[in-house]
Design a protein around this nucleic acid. Structure first.
Lengths: 213, 213
DNA sequence: TAGATTGTTAATCGATTAACAATC
DNA sequence: TAGATTGTTAATCGATTAACAATC
């Protein structure tokens, strides 16, 4: 078995492939070439072939890739071929939005518990889940075997929430708070920071269009 | 004047620097070294110095960087030293969350108009903004000189919204819909896709911990 | 002055792309 | 068979890191 290190860039492209393959499958397209994929996704076909080849020989020379077969393979690689229990802390606007996205996620990511630090939120129902107090976090996520934690609290509470997730045994964290959280190195953290996203977008604005003062 | 191409990686780190510098400023810290920054942000100090040096000589040898001066400079580089008018389409949970984040954004990103395609949403008030019908989009954003558009509609409506943003003259788009939108090359698009984010997180889960069936 | 830290060049590392034999 | 397309190696490109002279 090959043991090449797969770069993060490769892993981040897999969901992009998957999303488009799902579209194709819905349209009953059976086969797709790296050429087709590259054109649609603005990526180099060679890169797509190389990305997929890290994990196996999924294509057929002269033909391309079987759409449904490739979907199955990528889902397996991403480990989303089984339901993954997820917990979320922070029942504000963003937290609610993510919980309701659940419907969207036919992708086996299931939010199974929601927590909030504020009494006013506790007991509230979001997408059929009752918001629980922080005190119950560690036990609940242990019991439910939660593997991924989502943080949608203000920046100043994020590190504390992360610590509790770690105590509760999550393996990965998706952090929406605009702050770098510190966790043991074996825990994977991704940041989803749209403030930063907007700011870096602004860099590309055309300065000649600035309003003259 | 140097005309080196600044890579996207560099631009994406600037908001990260800025965020931490703002924290320091609030704590009345006057000076910071690339060493300090690197440690706090999990980045190589040489990289930080190099990033900043693309834009000017902001530090003092033997001393480090003046926090407030560097904040000012980065804000200027990112073009967020003036208010940037932003419009948002899709008054669902996520859209509302982003609008309310406005308060957070002392960063000169101002959502000045919100639109939705559905009658039930139109007229509703979100953070002091009345949701407007799609028909008014092009004119409104022209009048308000909107420069950035945010898309928080379902995937199948996203391309249409993008087209309208382009007609209305936006220069950049932040797309939350899980689909690749096509726009003229001079328009900058960033994707903020937490489905993809979650899926790539799942890859890093420890498979030895999978439940045995 | 001695110690610290920048800005920058050179070295390294890694990711992307091109090219092509294998083969459906 | 002829045309198409993969998987993979080699070439290229770009980004990160190390090292150090300049200097506060």
């Amino acid at each position: 078995m090959k043991t090449v290190k797969i770069s993060e860039a490769v892993v981040r492209r897999l969901p992009i492939y998957l999303r488009y393959l799902n579209e194709l499958s819905k349209k009953n397209v059976n086969t797709v070439s790296s050429q087709d994929l590259g054109q649609k996704l603005d990526l180099n076909p060679a890169q797509i072939r190389k990305d997929l080849a890290y994990f196996g020989e999924f294509g057929k020379k002269g033909i391309g890739y079987d759409v449904d077969y490739l979907i199955e393979k990528i889902r397996h690689i991403l480990k989303i071929d089984k339901v993954i229990p997820v917990a979320l802390v922070g029942a504000g606007n963003l937290g609610r939005a993510l919980c309701n996205y659940n419907a969207y996620l036919k992708d086996n990511m299931k939010i199974v518990a929601v927590f909030d630090a504020h009494d006013s939120k506790i007991g509230e129902s979001i997408n059929n889940l009752k918001v629980k107090p922080m005190g119950e976090l560690t036990n609940t996520i242990k019991n439910l075997q939660v593997r991924i934690g989502i943080i949608t609290v203000p920046a100043f509470e994020a590190q504390n929430v992360a610590n509790q997730f770690v105590s509760g045994g999550v393996e990965a964290i998706l952090n929406f708070a605009p702050i770098i959280i510190k966790v043991p190195h074996e825990i994977r953290v991704h940041h989803a920071d749209f403030t930063a996203e907007l700011q870096s977008l602004a860099y590309y604005l055309d300065e000649t269009k600035d309003i003259i003062e």
